[in-house]
Design a protein around this nucleic acid. Structure first.
Length: 136
RNA sequence: CCAGACGGCCGGGCGGUCGCUCUCACCUUCGGGUGGGGGAGGAAAGUCCGGGCUCCACGACGACAUGGCGGCGGGUAACGCCCGCCGGGGGCGACCCCAGGGAUAGCGCCACAGAGAGCAGACCGCCUGGCCCUCGGGUCAGGUAAGGGUGAAAGGGUGCGGUAAGAGCGCACCGCGGACCCAGCAAUGGGGACGGCAUGGCAAGCCCCGCCAGGAGCAAGACCGAAUAGGGACCACGCGCCGGUUCGCCGGCAGGGCUGUCGUAGGCUCAGGGGUCCGGGUAGGUCGCGAGAACCGUCCAGCGAUGGGCGGUCCAGAGGAAUGAUCGCCAAUGCCCGUUUCGGCGGGCGGCACAGAACCCGGCUUACAGGCCGUCUGGUUUC
RNA sequence: CGGGGCGUAGCGCAGCCUGGUAGCGCAUCUGCUUUGGGAGCAGAGGGUCGAAGGUUCAAAUCCUUUCGCCCCGA
């Protein structure tokens, strides 16, 4: 394993997932990835996995989560940003997609979200719209 | 060889690389690390039954209500499960299916059609008699359930006798009921004097009879136990001044805060905070949690389900939920191409069932690509 | 884990208990009315009663199994 400069934890509770659901997301191939900057002082990276009943039965759902977990184990220490929460959501092809394609999906989603987070337009000091929002 | 019936079993294997979890041993800078070992199923599923276990309730027994079960005998911890037998139905057969007690305990229902549908019923017919008559028939009073027609079902069936025509009216056979006899533990089967047909169906309609059942469920239950806010006890400081006091407080004056600010007046309000400890208890954690109605082999009893003896084995314990990801080879099957001495051989593609323990067992039901073994039945060919 | 309910026409519902004819409203179609539309009036079409099996002469209804959806309790 590469040397991670931050500890990695697993997200388990419903409020954690709900908070991440409001964050920017990125769909690539068989997975949807959500990334949320917790904006606290901790550098911990938290990772969560989920698969809905729409994907399939319990065997299919658990296989999808195992494959996403394996992909996260390989890519998160390299590509994640400290202090962020990541949620992997399985889509229909997650259990059957070729393995290197699945890795490409996750890698490209992680890079895309990281680039999006670096854009200054996403900063909170964005200028308000001059039309309606006077003071909120 | 083909078609089929029944019973049982498997439902990938091996090897790299990287991981997860439990356990044991060692090391440790107490964070962890290294090595060995274990790590999903026949249905783990649906949650349809029966138990273990835990808590609650409860003098004992009985009755009632409600729910379930229902041929007989056996097996079992128990069952609505299993085995054997009986009865009924289906199949040429091996074999399969059946909620299979009671309809003279009572209530209820049997639509439509049809004359009549439940102590039945004369529409068309058939027969007898009276009257009328154009001798074809009509009408009236009776008899009659053999025939037509309706229906799921028409109150035994066939034949002969009998009769005005008919009718269990009589007889024979069959069916039904049946005292009694025989076989069997029993369900039931065989025989059967006699009866002379009285007794239609539905109880997966109410019901009757017999049997069974207290309720809830591991989120049961037990233990440990933060932060915050309540509760209680103790400690020291504080609790303005004056007066009264039944020691709870009361009155007056003074003080702080609020009433936007300042002054005045008025109103409201405050009179304590700190430390230590205790108790309940939330989040959370630990236990419950796997050596048992266990599995494997073998012997004995039994037709069998099953029971017993002996020997051996230890066989998952997670917690948003581990038991995996990926790569290669092989097995097996399908398709295509080439070749063939029609047995095969070589190459390519594809390489796949249903499905994931959540306290644990015994069953049932449902899902399931492909394959293997055994026994039996029917047919065909050859010897 | 336990308990309860629902599935009937395109949609929302009756009918089931007590078995024999599947009905109501909206929607659709046709005609009338109007200059035209809407509204109104008259009429018509449309349903494997979630699926399979059983009981019965006969099942949407009764029984069993199964599929899907919803709600509640701890």
């Amino acid at each position: 394993m590469t040397d991670p400069s931050f500890p990695i934890e697993r997200m388990k509770t419903r409020p954690q997932f709900l908070a991440a659901a409001k964050a920017p997301s990125c769909a690539r191939g068989a997975v949807v990835l959500q990334a949320r900057d917790r904006a606290d002082d901790s550098p911990v990276v938290r990772v969560g996995f989920t698969a809905t009943k729409k994907v399939g039965g319990s065997v299919i759902r658990n296989r999808a989560k195992r494959r996403m977990r394996e992909a996260a184990r390989m890519l998160i220490p390299v590509l994640a940003r400290p202090g962020h929460d990541y949620v992997f959501i399985a889509r229909g092809g997650a259990p059957t997609r070729p393995w290197d394609r699945l890795l490409d999906d996750v890698k490209s989603a992680l890079l895309s979200l990281a680039a999006d987070s670096d854009t200054p337009a996403r900063a909170p000091a964005r200028a308000p719209s001059p039309t309606v929002r006077a003071g909120a």
